[in-house]
Design a protein around this nucleic acid. Sequence first.
DNA 1: ACTCTGCGAAGAGGA
Length: 927
Amino acid sequence: MNVRGPIVSVEDTRTVSTSYGDRELREIRIRPERGAADPVRVTLWGKWAQTGEHARIGMELLVTDVEVDEFRGETTYATTRESWVVLEPDFLVDVTGIRSWVQCPRMYYLNKLSGIPLNYPVVKGTIVHEVFGDLLRGVDLEESVTERVAEAGLDLGLLGYDAAEVEDEVRRNAAAIEGWLAQGTLTDEDTWRSEFTLISPRFGLKGRADALRRGTPVELKTGKNTNREPRFHDKVQAACYALMLEERGEDPDIGTLLYTKNTALDRNEESGDLAPAKEFSVGRGFLEFVVRERNALAAMEWRALHDAANDDAPDVDTVDDDGGDEARTRPTVPTGYEADAKCQFCFEQDTCMVVSGRLDQESKAGQVGRPVPDEELVYFDRFYTAIEEERRETHAEYRKLWEQTPAERAADDRALIDLEPLGKTEISEARWELRARKPGDAVSKLREGDVALASDGDPVGGHAELVRIRRLGPDGEVVVEADEPVTLRRLDVYPSEISVDRMLTALHDAVLKGDPDRKDVIFGRREPAFKSVVGSGAAGDADLSDEGAEPVYIDNNASQNAAVDLAVRAADCALIHGPPGTGKTYTIARTIRALCERGDRVLLAAFTNRAVDNALEALRDQGFEDVVRVGTETGVREDMQDVRLRTRGDPDERAAELKTAPVVAATTAACGSRVLRECEFDVALVDEASQLTEPSTHAAITLADRFVLVGDHQQLPPVVRAENDLQRSLFERLIELYPDAGVMLDRQYRMSQRIQAFASAEFYDGALRPATPAVAGQSLTDLGVAVDDLPEELGHGVNFIDPDGRRDGNRNVREAERVAEIVASYIKAGVDPDDIGVIAPFRAQVAEISRRTDVTVDTVDRFQGSAKEVIVVSFVASGTLDGPIFDDYRRVNVALTRAKKELTLVGDAAALASDPFYRRMLAWARR
DNA sequence: ACTCTGCGAAGAGGA
């Protein structure tokens, strides 16, 4: 049996005499999840006592296969030979993380913090890994090498390599693999699997094994190793996979390391064992070691979060604030002293010393440089902790893969279950197309183009593969593309840590590598500067030139023109506040053109692909075509594919395309990618900046000398799972800090006077107004609709209807029915269904309404950025306004400002009147 | 209690 629960007390390790001699033990009390509410005693014997050293009150402890005993009337537990002891099992450690942790815990920390930059060993390693996978799947070597090198064209070009030399080197590596494979596959009993995704709930591990051979892990290393034994940390990595395979009921007694640089060509020069493959036996003791290391890592991560939040915690570093009387607690970070690794041989030594120096951390390698100012240290620690909290939330998403039943998972819209497998076709060598049919009208968050986890029904314990969704047909057809043929019975959303990883590297880049002038502004030490005249180059710094007219970029909108002017004159940054319908996108396009005309190279970034493509479209509409769009094939909209940067092809050509484009457009997530981190710009212009966390904004702006943020902090804030500093955007913080560095676009081209009035008064101090009389006076009549054809309660520009419905969970069926009737009335009166949109706060209600109408129905969040002639809003709530979704009034701002000519609010008057804000809304709507 | 977009899914190396 297993015991598990939060730790309530930890005793010291002691040594006792047993019939087997002296043995160490450590006693820990936990509060078990089930059963007795009282804490129970768990004794960790032998080396598990070492894991006990890392244990802290509040951490979660899991001990499997315990021995149960009665001691003085109390039930106690102890480890046995079969036991595994796992600290914080919910913290999912990546196998490559354990590998670097074993080399040196600080290396693990540094890799996480500074990311792995674009470098040749990694790119070549990736290519060789892909070729290895191809060879296992029977692809011809030459064909694979040519193809895989071509696919890496952009990376190689940026690194200055040409295809032929890389092909040559990869071919030599691959030859070693092929030679070894030829021996291995002589026996019929050899079964191979490549790229095996493993997730371990028990050990809190995840990772991808390069290959499995007869159920044992095979790890490919593109380096050379002339020792008889595999490198220790390589064995650790393979052992992690062995551990996870064992959990799945396999019995992997050996692991294989394949060093592909151990080739015949080198054999004359070197002594030692040059066979590429090295096997080692995977014993129980080694696996236990691996688990203890994983526990040490998970415990450090726990302390980094909890010690920082708890000033009383013992054994943490403290830094004095300016005042000196208050000590600030800093997150626990590995120093390198934990390991006996030798710093002078470490590839990360320079990074290690720089990070230590800049962040004032203790480290075995020592420090170089001076610490950044104290407020920057505070900022770094605050956001580091916030990002790590967000990581925990991502881990919670993984946990749902095994904690939720398939039905719960499907109800959560995170999986398509009970798929009926229809077939597997090998579409090209080593690529499979898997087809299935989904039952009924099952819906999910999964979309075409997404990476998802396809499985035989059990995504954690069964056969699962990461696949790309090709088609989710309305007829229930599901088509995915995979490397291996899995029987497609279930498709799950696969959580990704990429966004948290990218935020962390962006934070690192911003604080450690950021330009000091830039940081003065970010950290509130200096007002942003503006050039008074727009000159070319550095000449325009003077404030004397009153002669000559103000530059006119946009002649019919003073605030838009002022925004462009401000952005062009910005020496540090400019902030453009664009309320709904104020021509943000047009202004962005005009700004980019003005900047390019001065010779600036511009990075155009936004949170979503949709916003990037919209801005790009506006730019191209203005006749500017010299753009490169960086993004995935599925992320980039169809009509922007022609300017999308291909990663495949001739290295020089691909790299030149990116390096010389006057405008590069990408999502902020892509800005944090290896490729874009290599690029430099004069100006970064970030749209939707109010929806971005500070670190995500840094990902874009650290690539440029100056930046322009465009957004509206009165609309929806960043989407984050954890509640912390990430919820507030840099845009919002800066616009409050430096109102003079901002311009608000105050004329809107979208809504009638009647519709915009409430939002203008509530959110924009009444400053938002219609751009023209025509905008102000628009109505349904302009659509050729006779208002007389509508029921009496509709047709007044803004209407309120109380259908007397009742909220049931996140739905309100009566209200949904009424909304459908209202939509039908509009259509009957002659409104084009394409001109009508329905908005609801909950997805459940969106589904409820969608069943009853064919017009566009979506959540507020998904409607942000678009508009319709007629909008119907369903509020769902009845009686009271309980729920976090109603707390953020900005969501209402978004919902109400989607309508151009007619807006109908549908809800329970009593519920809405229970809150002053909603009461004012009601008063306005009923007028 | 809710909302939910991005990410190539990881990936390498030497005294």
